[in-house]
Amino acid sequence: MTDAELLKQCHTVLPGHRARTPAEMFSAMAAWCEANDVAHDVYGSGELIQQFEQKVASLLGFEAAVFCISGTMAQVTALRLACEDRASRLVALHPTSHIFVHEKSNYQLLGHFDALHVGDRHRPFTAADLATIPDRLGAVGLELPMREIGGQAPSWDELEAIKAHCRNRNVHLHMDGARLWEAAAGYNRPAQEIAAGFDSCYVSLYKGIGGLGGAMLAGSASFVARAAEWFRRQGGNVIHRSPYVVAAAMQFEQRLAQMPLYFRRTERLYETLRDYPSIKVNPASPQANMLHLHLPVSRERALAIRNDIARDHKVWLFGRAAHGALPGTSVVELYVGDNLTGMPDHAVRTALDLLCAAIEKTA
Rank of each mutant, 00 (worst) to 15 (best):
M1H: 10
D3R: 14
A4L: 07
L7Q: 10
Q9V: 04
Q9N: 10
Q9R: 14
L14P: 04
P22F: 02
A23D: 04
A23V: 08
E24Y: 04
W32S: 09
E34M: 13
E34A: 11
D37Y: 01
D37P: 03
Q50F: 12
Q54T: 15
Q54I: 15
Q54M: 14
K55S: 12
A57Y: 12
S58R: 15
L60W: 04
I69V: 13
S70T: 15
Q75M: 12
Q75P: 00
R80M: 10
L81M: 08
L90A: 05
H94M: 12
H94Q: 11
V101C: 05
H102F: 09
H112G: 01
F113W: 06
D120N: 13
H122Y: 02
H122K: 13
F125M: 07
T126N: 02
A131V: 04
T132V: 08
I133Q: 08
I133S: 05
G141Y: 02
E148F: 05
I149Y: 01
G151I: 11
W156Y: 07
E160W: 05
G186Q: 01
Y187N: 12
P190T: 14
I194G: 00
A195V: 10
A195H: 09
F198K: 05
F198T: 07
G211W: 04
A215V: 10
G219D: 11
E229W: 06
R232A: 08
R233I: 14
R241A: 12
Y244I: 09
A248D: 12
F252Y: 14
L256N: 07
A257R: 15
L261K: 05
L261D: 12
E267I: 00
L269C: 00
S278I: 00
V281H: 09
V281G: 02
A284W: 09
I305A: 00
R311A: 01
D312P: 03
K314L: 03
L317C: 07
R320M: 04
R320H: 09
A325G: 06
V331E: 06
V336A: 03
G337Q: 11
G337Y: 00
G337T: 15
L340V: 14
G342R: 14
G342E: 14
P344R: 15
R349E: 10
A351H: 00
A351P: 05
